[in-house]
């Protein structure tokens, strides 16, 4: 029993370490001072400042736009990619495609950023919104594939046979059986793509050029100049936004796992 308490203290410490910096930021966003050293009275001033910062608001909107567009397009292309990989039957080809798919998952951000920069320059593509959007789509596609593919693999082929047996055409099989079945995977993929895009700093930093900025790039620029409590206010808001996103994802996951639970029960019945 005593050992158990030591473990909890250790876990509590780890949680403390993980969350202190975040709450530290949020705490000082309400401070009247201009640094993160002394809390000198409560104020909303930094939030007001943030909401009047036309440039910052524009950047936030741009960031959200890029995240939304890139995750939508990445989801569509990734879904098609998962279908392609699923369709390939020869193990050698399947593994080759999977390895190629995963290259961008395992590559360090700087490599992706640098190589995309060379690529866009090589094509004479103007750096800016377009190049950032294309890059975000590109590095989000593999995660969508990895989220959808297990759902496709898990789907029993006899479901497709059954649909055809009952008179469904190829498009009907897809829309009425396959799509509903893999929908949780598609949602998870979309969500992951969205957070990847919001999170990215390094790739964007390389391919953004001068005219276009995302939030991460802006924060980097401002952080290099020193502390500004407006960023604290921003991070508090982003933390809230993350919480909402995670809560949404958690609900989605719960929904998935309850579905899985049902499936397990079904299998148990099946084996009985």
């Amino acid at each position: 029993m005593k050992r158990f308490r030591w473990q909890n203290i250790y876990l509590a410490l780890v949680f403390l370490v993980l969350y202190i910096p975040i709450f530290y930021l949020i705490f000082y966003s309400f401070s009247q001072g201009h640094n993160m050293n002394h809390f000198s009275g409560f104020t909303w001033a930094h939030y007001q400042e943030l909401f009047q910062d036309q440039r910052m608001i524009e950047i936030v909107l741009d960031t959200l736009l890029v995240a939304l567009l890139s995750s939508l397009l990445a989801t569509i292309i990734g879904l098609l990619g998962a279908l392609v990989i699923h369709r390939v039957k020869k193990p050698m080809w399947k593994n080759t495609l999977l390895s190629l798919n995963n290259i961008l998952m395992v590559s360090p951000d700087v490599i992706i950023g640098a190589s995309f920069l060379i690529f866009f320059t090589f094509l004479g593509f103007k750096l800016g919104f377009g190049s950032v959007l294309l890059s975000h789509i590109a590095f989000s596609i593999p995660i969508v594939v990895l989220m959808v593919l297990p759902k496709l693999n898990e789907m029993n082929t006899s479901l497709v046979d059954a649909a055809r047996d009952l008179g469904a055409t190829q498009p009907q099989v897809f829309s009425r059986v396959v799509l509903p079945y893999i929908a949780p995977g598609i949602f998870a993929g979309f969500f992951m793509a969205f957070t990847y895009s919001l999170d990215d700093f390094a790739v964007t930093f390389f391919v953004t050029g001068n005219g276009f900025e995302t939030l991460a790039v802006e924060i980097y620029a401002r952080a290099r100049q020193g502390i500004s409590l407006e960023i604290n206010a921003l991070s508090a808001l982003m933390f809230l936004f993350s919480l909402v996103l995670v809560a949404g994802y958690y609900v989605l996951n719960q929904y998935n796992s309850s579905k899985k639970g049902r499936k397990r029960r079904m299998e148990a019945n099946h084996n009985r």
Binding site: A162, P180, Y181, K259, H270
Partner: peptide
């Protein structure tokens, strides 16, 4: 029409 070994009922 076919009755499948694993029934192949649509779970959704």
């Amino acid at each position: 029409n076919t009755v499948f070994q694993d029934y192949a009922l649509f779970p959704h």
